[in-house]
Amino acid sequence: MCSFVYRGTASIMGQKILLSAQEIHIILHRLACQLLENHLHFKDTVLIGLQPRGTALAQRLVKILKEDYQQEVSLGFLDITFFRDDFRRSDKTLTANKTDIPFLIDDKKVVLIDDVLFTGRSIRAALTALQSFGRPDKIELLTLIDRRFSRHLPIQPEYRGRQVDVINHEKVKVMWAETDGQDAIYIVNEP
């Protein structure tokens, strides 16, 4: 809980905490409840986490739904590298991650899950990429952090953890206990 102690303090190494572990815990449970409220038994609903950063969030939600609400939810991971619109625009070659969708999404309700919604371009790519796996009945978007006022495309989430106003050169960094040692979300100043 040490990250909780730092809450509200000014920048530490150019970064300030946006959400502590405890706040993330509460938000995740709320998001899980909202999913449950809209999808009830998850019989026709699948969750798809976007690689690389949306997968941890998706796994957490699946775990909460299973342990606290006894819901078995199908989970897949989608990599959008080959569908991005900035191929050859960035200096570095885009490297891919694993796509693992072990079910058909035909006529299913799909909930796309990503940690931060920024320009909306990743979600645009994900919508195109999903077409390779069938014709879903409906696609929804769940995001932990919604960076308001920075969208390049008309894309909005159905479920959002926290809406934030961040200036463009600031970066939202989401950390997970499983991979980064702690649950925390920071705003990092990148000049």
Binding site: D79, T81, F82, F83, R84, F87, R88, T95, A96, N97, K98, T99, T128, A129, Q131, S132, F133, G134
Partner: peptide, 23 residues
């Protein structure tokens, strides 16, 4: 090889195409 692993997964989908090299 690592990139080909990903493409091998792509060519085993029902829609085997990605739009990377459109231009």
């Amino acid at each position: 090889f690592e990139t080909a692993d990903h493409f091998k997964e792509v060519i085993n989908r029902s829609i085997k195409k990605v739009p990377s090299l459109r231009d």
